[in-house]
Design a protein around this nucleic acid. Structure first.
Lengths: 247, 247
DNA sequence: CGAAGAAACTGGTCGGACCAGTTGACGTGT
DNA sequence: ACACGTCAACTGGTCCGACCAGTTTCTTCG
């Protein structure tokens, strides 16, 4: 049988958080607006004050509201105060669909970070990282040649290993953390994107060229080849979403 | 008189949060370690469970711990699970000093994002943004020529306006959010960095060239000029911190 | 020995009381 | 009429103790 999906067990605090966050992100709660007092919100949501406060704390940490002891809790301008961790919540627009602008932004940032990380890795990657890169390349080659070129899950796993190594090799902690967020953000569209970027992921030659540039310590060449590689997926994803917009 | 500084009024929850976060970030609490039960922690910290829970919720949201209903709360591998919002907390190393690696990472990311945003802005910036860029450039010129070339605060303010416009012109929400974090992160070293990047900020010609490239819609030239501009500050900051390391 | 079940954990929710800042209205004095 | 101090009525912050809801562990029985 099957066809069922896991029941979502969200805590009360999370439920409250989600509701308020959605209202702020879609503009229903305008910037500067003061939220009702906590005691009033507890009645409105029908939850205890503890749960309500946990939700507000998280909203504050994300940069969506500003809590002031004694004063009111106000909606902040998240475009100015929120951090990249907000990204996963921006994917779903007001209509519940995927926000094409956010997708485009993510693909652009992916390219920018991947390219710069590759360039940096060319100058910094340790022998261990370089050896591991060769292993990943070998795995990719064998997967593709052994008829696994349509194995989206296998390709995705190798892709993660490949870029994790380059990011680690770059020695840049910002990139490391940003990648975590980008990956988190694209999870809701994972199945679709895995299909769209398949051509990029199974392009063995492009991966080999990139590793060669890193190996040679040629940062600029590594950057160029990373851009070439990552632009494949970007173009594919962009084409899909801009087409969807027109249709 | 003066010489005083504002008293820090931290909430109990924040104090708990800070202590645990510091322990996780400096490795005192190893990855996978299970935290004591909430009721045990309340006694250890001498605070109420509500405050304790608010702190734990925030740690969870940052990706530092994983809370599971019924199970234990465990320390996560923040390098894998935390987002860019963690960055401001990475600046202060175990010894209380500034972490040079983090500073270097931020300067690198600043260049990467600034360059790509400039390139994108060249193709997308609206007439309003371009006009505003000219205004900022005019303000920079007048400030520098009127003897304000040593006005760090004035230069910093113009710098913020300049890059905010380019980021907005790029239409990339990821960059917008990332910049918020980067700015937040560099706040503890603000005074120092403002001095180090002064040469970059008062380089009127470089700013003018960049705007011209954006105006011409030449993405690649805009990118190159942004890199040239941003690399000035990066080099200065890097020189300072690597020198400090040796000394 | 293995599996069902009970007990002892864990975090999650509740309610109500009180502490601590902020705000603004209301007098009071000039 | 105006400026100022005061106070009451907000706001969020902290505490307590109880109970609900999952997980883990150990016991017990087949």
């Amino acid at each position: 049988m099957s066809g069922f999906s896991p029941v979502e067990r969200t805590s009360v605090a999370t439920a409250v958080f989600d509701q308020i966050a959605a209202r702020i992100l879609d503009g229903t709660l305008p910037v500067g607006e003061r939220l009702p007092a906590e005691r009033a919100l507890t009645e409105e949501f029908g939850v205890n004050r503890q749960a309500l406060r946990e939700a507000l704390q998280r909203l504050d940490q994300l940069g969506l509201v500003e809590i002031r002891h004694g004063g009111a809790t106000r909606v902040r301008d998240f475009r100015r105060t929120a951090g990249l961790d907000l990204l996963p919540r921006l994917f779903l627009g007001a209509d519940g669909g995927i926000d094409a602008t956010t997708v485009r932004s993510v693909m652009e940032m992916r390219t920018a970070i991947g390219a710069d990380a590759s360039s940096l890795a060319a100058g910094r990657a340790s022998a261990e990282v370089r050896a591991a890169l060769h292993d990943v390349l070998a795995d990719l080659e064998s997967l593709v040649t052994d008829g696994g070129a349509d194995d989206t899950a296998g390709l995705a796993a190798i892709d993660v290993r490949f870029w994790d190594l380059l990011i680690e090799g770059s020695g840049n902690v910002c990139y490391r953390l940003s990648v975590n967020v980008l990956r988190d953000a694209y999870r809701p569209v994972e199945a679709l994107v895995d299909l769209l970027v398949m051509d990029e992921r199974r392009d063995v030659a492009a991966h080999r060229d990139l590793i060669a540039a890193v190996e040679a310590g040629d940062g600029e060449r590594a950057r160029a080849r990373a851009v070439a590689l990552l632009d494949q997926g970007r173009a594919a994803v962009l084409a899909h979403f801009s087409e969807e917009e027109r249709g």
